[in-house]
Amino acid sequence: MNRASYTAARLLQIVPTFILIGIVVFVLVRILPGGPVAALLGDKASDEAIERITRQLGLDAPILVQFWRFLETIARGDLGDSIAYHVAVVRLIAERLPVTLLLTGMATIFAIALAVPLAFVAAVTQNRWPDLAIRGAFQVGLSSPIFYVGLILLTVFAGAMHIFPVGGYGETPGEHLYHLFLPALALALSFSAVIMRSLRASVIEVLSAEFVDFARAKGLRRRIVLGRHVLRNALISTVALIGLQIGDLLGGAVITESVFAVPGVGRLMVDSIFARDYPVIQGLTLALAVLVSLVFLATDLVQMALDPRVAK
């Protein structure tokens, strides 16, 4: 199979995934106790007010009718209106998804920049002091809650030293990068620990492979052996790992966005679940499902580029 038809096939696979996730989330939000109208109107609302708004929103219809209407809105390329905010879900997502993409993108770059060189150093100095120091440091990073790391970064670099702003997002692209530096770093720390451990293990494994001995025996310089042969082979499994971690990264973004007051979809999701804002939860879940599918696809394509055997 060539790369283009492979990509097309994978894109087609997203469609059934999308439908299945749509059904699951549609049912799940309705299983949660409490509904959007009572959550919106609060404890003071009268029964009449709740009934009237439930009717207006069509939430009194049988669940199959509601599901049919949900499919209709999706078919129109629409995701309905938010019950709490009274605006289109598409607009909320369009305003906030780029923020989360930038945050997770920066976090991924930071994590790779941090993990790859140190994993190499750790692997080639296996069980000697640099390896132990690096592994120890990353173990701390891995086991510290993002919430806590975030607060420490904020207190030190923003609160005390005033190098970075205390949360927020800013107005211009430059300000966005500046504001997201600390949250991306907080998010990157535990992520980089996962990458570092995996890459270190792969490098150690590859270093003992026969083709490396062969390359060395050919008299290739150490730097070429490590850079061209070891890195490329060790990265194959690490790239897959980075792709698979996207879910965790989005989960971490929820917490990071709250601590750093970043207006992304993570916070929107949490707020919407607490408000039982069905259309937002459904729309956002579908958008994230597509996003995760695309990241998996991109991961596979990168893996194919590194290792043509994957395509076969």
Binding site: L151, A158, P165, V166, G167, S258, A261, R267
Partner: peptide, 18 residues
């Protein structure tokens, strides 16, 4: 009116003069 849900962050921002 910026929205900052986390109490500690809000107060840190106040102390930093932001």
């Amino acid at each position: 009116f910026p929205v900052i849900p986390d109490d500690s962050t809000r107060l840190l921002k106040l102390k930093a003069g932001e």
